[in-house]
């Protein structure tokens, strides 16, 4: 009977697939319309591929500036996350030393401390350190937020590297730093890409941490910028839609090319958990 169940399921599943894609299609269509067109009929296909709304969303409301802020912050955060995460992941996943299991447990525990729980005192710590409203402040906040997860995944990955490879490198006279740099980093590169893409998505998509750490308008990241778009364009929905799509575009591109990697990163946590 499993066979017939398959066909019964196919119909709602196709409908769901449409429901999954439709919101984006609708928004794209709206972004192509003129304001007049939108007011008259929001569902009809736009009468031309029109990019004016995208250019005005890009230039008029600081979107380009927010975009740049996001790129800088995300790039630095991910680089730091991968560096610190792979170092600590190698040490915790591969080396037995005094306190290593305690540290690993502490890392797991930190996974269960969501940002909302520490945001008030963290804001205070950051402002005492003079880091509020600066790139380094937001970058550090992201690194602190996503580091336990990164360490956890990298430690799990490094634990699977065959010990023959490590032994061979040791006999060749490598110190542990050499093993990290010449063996673990290259062998772990695919895992680093998965974790890096996932972290980039987390940082790019975040709004709460960024709202808290970057209060001034010119330091906004793109997602915070999008939240302010709505107020500025409440009477010009097509430009608003275009701004939203600009903010989503990098993620969509990454998704198209790296879907497998993202799924790997998500499931690695599940299968190792």
């Amino acid at each position: 009977m499993v066979r017939s169940a398959r066909w019964v399921a196919a119909v709602p599943m196709a409908a769901l697939a449409v429901a999954t894609v439709y919101p984006l299609v609708f928004t794209t269509n709206v972004a192509m319309k003129t304001r007049r067109e939108y007011v008259l009929d929001r569902f009809a296909p736009a009468d031309a591929l029109r990019w004016d709304n995208f250019t005005s969303a890009w230039t008029n409301v600081g979107t380009s500036r927010y975009f740049l802020n996001s790129v800088i912050v995300v790039a630095c955060s991910v680089a730091l996350l991968l560096l610190l995460g792979s170092m600590a992941g190698f040490a915790l996943g591969r080396l037995k030393f005094r306190g290593s299991s305690t540290l690993f447990l502490g890392c797991l525990a930190a996974l269960f401390v969501p940002f909302q729980v520490i945001m008030v005192p963290l804001a205070r710590v950051m402002s005492d350190a003079g880091l509020v409203d600066t790139y380094p402040g937001l970058i550090l906040a992201y690194v602190a937020q996503f580091l336990p997860f990164t360490i956890f995944l990298m430690a799990g990955h490094y634990a699977t590297v065959p010990s023959e490879i490590v032994d061979a490198a040791r006999i060749d006279g490598n110190s542990l730093y050499g093993v990290y740099w010449r063996i673990m980093l290259p062998i772990g590169a695919p895992a680093l890409v998965s974790v890096g893409v996932l972290n980039a998505l987390f940082c790019w998509n975040d709004v709460l941490i960024s709202l808290l750490m970057m209060p001034s308008a010119e330091n906004r990241t793109l997602m915070v910028g999008v939240t302010s778009l709505r107020g500025q364009y409440s009477d010009d929905i097509p430009v608003f839609a275009a701004g939203v799509l600009i903010a989503a575009l990098p993620v969509l591109v990454v998704y198209l090319f790296l879907q497998r990697r993202i799924a790997e990163g998500v499931t690695a946590g599940a299968t190792k958990g």
């Binding site: 610190l84 502490g106 930190a110 963290l122 710590v125 906040a141 602190a144």
Partner: peptide, 9 residues
């Protein structure tokens, strides 16, 4: 990083 910016807060 984790101690200063996660556990201490």
């Amino acid at each position: 990083v984790v101690v200063l910016l996660r556990l201490w807060p």
